Computed example of a mutant assay.
Amino acid sequence: MEVLLSHSFDYLSSSSPQKIRKGLRQVEGLLAQICLSRSPPANKRHSIISQGQQASPPSRKLANLRDDPAFREFFKLQQSFQCNVAIRLISCLERLMGKGSNGQNDLLIISTLELLQGVLLLHTPSRELFAREIHMNLLLDLLDPCNCPAIQSSTLLTLVSTLLGQPGNTRTFESLDGLLVITALFKSRSTAREVKMKLVEFLYFYLMPETPQMQPQMSASASNTAVLGGRGRELVAAFERNRRETIGGVDKANSESSQTRNTEEKQKMLGKYLGNVDDLVEDLRESGGPFMGGAL
């Protein structure tokens, strides 16, 4: 797996769109092996019948992945800065954004964003990379009105992945006028309808109350230890050391931004840019918001 990641990183760092696409496909194939069920069919006849009914194996729940050897190996490698996929995808996004807007490049950006979403869900410590302003700014730049609706929608989903269980990242998002970017895009007449729907879903997500930062971190550490076995604590600590050495200012940002916010506090902040926040909050309280049903 380490060799495959090394080869894919070489392709992702290329200036050639064809090589970048190949690198993205290699990463996608690796994630597919981890996330898709490889359970053998009950019998050969059932296998033949199901071939015409099901194009791909069913996906597995995240909770069931920790006992899978491939996932354990992937998670262990992600604790290393050298093998961390999220960092490579972020760097790839930066290069792609510098090439301007065209059909081929836009498709590569969308593919990179989709893979980044998956990696952040599989390896939660990688979300802390977005406590850095330079990385959060990257996503906010992708919400620029000049980008196509598909890029904007994928960016919103990726943004949610970076904020899940990370109040420090949310404070970085707020400090960079992320709410202004979101609401300005929502108010713009040129914004596509499907993007506006995703923006409303994002606002529901943002308004949800946050849990104390220490609680998710303890929870994540326990989960990491369970996934990695006896060496879990050692590997988590190693990732943290590498992250501090390679990502300047993250610890400072987290310590200064550790305060969580409830719905009322967020409502007040969002109200500076949007007039109907009360209706959103009321709907959130009555229905639990769209995320309770997996709308985003």
Score class of each variant (00 low, 15 high):
Ala226Gln: 15
Leu138Pro: 04
Arg127Ala: 04
Asp177Val: 00
Leu143Ile: 03
Glu245Val: 04
Glu245Tyr: 05
Val160Phe: 02
Ala226Leu: 14
Asp144Ala: 14
Glu282Leu: 10
Leu270Thr: 09
Lys266Ala: 11
Leu179Val: 01
Cys146Pro: 01
Ala55Gln: 15
Arg231Glu: 15
Glu2Pro: 03
Glu240Met: 11
Thr155Pro: 01
Ser56Val: 10
Leu107Asn: 12
Tyr206Asn: 04
Asn105Ala: 00
Glu210Met: 13
Thr211Asp: 09
Val250Gly: 01
Leu274Arg: 12
Leu296Gln: 15
Gln54Ser: 13
Arg261Asn: 01
Leu62Cys: 03
Gln267Ser: 14
Ser59Phe: 05
Leu176Phe: 12
Leu108Asn: 07
Asp251Met: 06
Gln259Trp: 04
Asn242Gly: 07
Ser8Cys: 13
Thr263Arg: 02
Ser223Tyr: 14
Leu274Pro: 06
Phe186Ile: 00
Glu210Thr: 05
Ala42Phe: 06
Asp283Phe: 03
Arg72Gly: 01
Leu108His: 06
Ala63Arg: 13
Arg72Asn: 11
Leu179Trp: 07
Pro57Ile: 08
Phe130Asn: 03
Ala192Gln: 12
Gly178Phe: 03
Ser257Gly: 15
Ala220Gln: 15
Leu179Ser: 05
Gly275Cys: 09
Thr162Arg: 05
Leu89His: 00
Thr211His: 04
Ser6Phe: 02
Glu282Gly: 11
Asn84Leu: 05
Thr162Val: 12
Arg25Phe: 07
Ala295Ser: 12
Leu65Lys: 06
Ala220Ile: 11
Leu280Tyr: 13
Asp251Lys: 01
Ala226Glu: 15
Gln26Val: 06
Ala55Met: 13
Arg66Tyr: 09
Met1Leu: 13
Arg241Cys: 09
Ala32His: 10
Thr263Lys: 03
Ser190Asp: 15
Glu2Gln: 12
Gly229Trp: 08
Arg95Ser: 00
Gln79Phe: 06
Arg21Gln: 09
Phe205Pro: 08
Thr124Pro: 04
Val27Cys: 01
Met97Ile: 07
Lys252Ile: 08
Ala220Asn: 11
Val200Pro: 02
Ile49Val: 14
His123Ile: 07
Ser257Thr: 12
Leu120Ser: 04
Ile247Phe: 02
Ser39Val: 10
Phe71Cys: 04
Ala32Leu: 02
Arg244Trp: 05
Asp10Val: 09
Leu157Glu: 02
Leu164Lys: 07
Asn84Ile: 01
Glu128Asp: 14
Ala238Pro: 00
Ser219Asn: 13
Leu31Tyr: 09
Tyr206His: 10
Leu115Met: 06
Gly168Thr: 10
Asp67Trp: 06
Gly29Asn: 15
Ser287Trp: 03
Gln215Thr: 11
Arg244Val: 04
Glu128Asn: 09
